[in-house]
């Protein structure tokens, strides 16, 4: 679709978009700028250019937030969640996309409903139940919670990819004597792999950034995720905001780089469940 507009409209449009751009980038710019400034200069003027770049903010942030440990924890938790969601989600999407039987509607309704269930509705019994079984501070248990919370979204997205696979392919394979497992692994998975990659990226982003569940279930010093460790570090009084911004940048940078490189996948995937067509 194309709209060609008068010069005046073009100007107004670009000015508005530019203003929104500045609003969006301003806090991010403050984070980057102050990550390389000493505390005293931030207090003086958070907008001023640094007199000299203070790179040791990053080394201090690394040790203060125990990033050697916590980034590793986040990576392991994220990887486990991605594997769990993609494995269980694609199996379910395979069934949901192919069977048009009424009973599957119930399952679909159930999954849709659980995407809108407030976390507080299951958080408290889950916490005290996990505590009883000694599952607090256990990243595997948290990966399962993430899987339960994120997989309905993943299934709805994967289902559209599974639907796009031609029926003839599946029927031909079944007639040739392939089992459903073989059809799933040999016919479907190679074709829907772009969809699985998209889901992996988005679920990875969600679990890397997740706060409420991580802060509730992983409180041991050795089990903290990077985001929670950052939260605790920045909550201390008399903290050095240069160091805090450096710590923020360490967590955000890999995500932003990945996002800019694979923007289409992120944006289409996250918008995927919400736009018709």
């Amino acid at each position: 679709m194309n709209m060609t507009e008068s010069r005046l409209t073009q100007w107004m449009v670009h000015i508005t978009l530019a203003v929104l751009l500045i609003i969006t980038l301003f806090p991010i710019a403050l984070m980057v700028l102050n990550a390389v400034k000493p505390s005293a200069e931030i207090v003086q003027n958070p907008l001023a250019w640094p007199t000299h770049l203070r790179w040791d903010n990053f080394t201090r942030a690394w040790s203060d937030a125990n990033f050697g440990r916590t980034l590793f924890n986040s990576a392991v938790l994220t990887a486990m969640t991605i594997v769990l969601v993609c494995a269980t989600g694609s199996l379910t999407a395979y069934v949901l996309a192919r069977r048009k039987i009424k009973t599957w509607k119930i399952l679909t309704f159930y999954l849709l409903a659980s995407t809108t269930a407030p976390i507080q509705l299951f958080l408290f019994p889950l916490y005290f139940g996990f505590a009883r079984f000694g599952l607090i501070n256990n990243p595997i248990a948290v990966a399962f919670i993430y899987t339960a919370v994120y997989s309905p979204f993943a299934i709805m997205l994967l289902r559209t990819y599974f639907l796009a696979v031609p029926k003839e392919l599946e029927e031909a394979a079944l007639i040739d004597g392939a089992t459903h497992w073989q059809v799933f692994t040999r016919v479907f998975l190679p074709i829907v792999s772009p969809g699985i990659l998209t889901v992996a990226l988005i679920i990875g982003l969600y679990s890397w950034n997740e706060f409420l569940i991580a802060t509730t279930f992983l409180q041991g010093q050795d089990q903290l995720t990077a985001v929670v460790s950052f939260f605790l570090l920045s909550g201390q009084y008399a903290s050095d905001w240069g160091v805090i911004m450096a710590a923020a940048l360490i967590i955000v940078l890999p995500i932003v780089v990945l996002f800019v490189l694979l923007q289409r996948r992120f944006i289409d995937g996250m918008a995927g469940g919400s736009v018709k067509g």
Partner: peptide, 24 residues
């Protein structure tokens, strides 16, 4: 524009919260 506007969505809430708290 779309990519820039989307940036805040991908930043962890804990970080966004602290940046606004401390820097603004």
């Amino acid at each position: 524009f779309q990519v820039i506007y989307f940036l805040p969505v991908i930043i962890a809430t804990a970080i966004t919260g602290r940046v606004w708290q401390g820097m603004i």
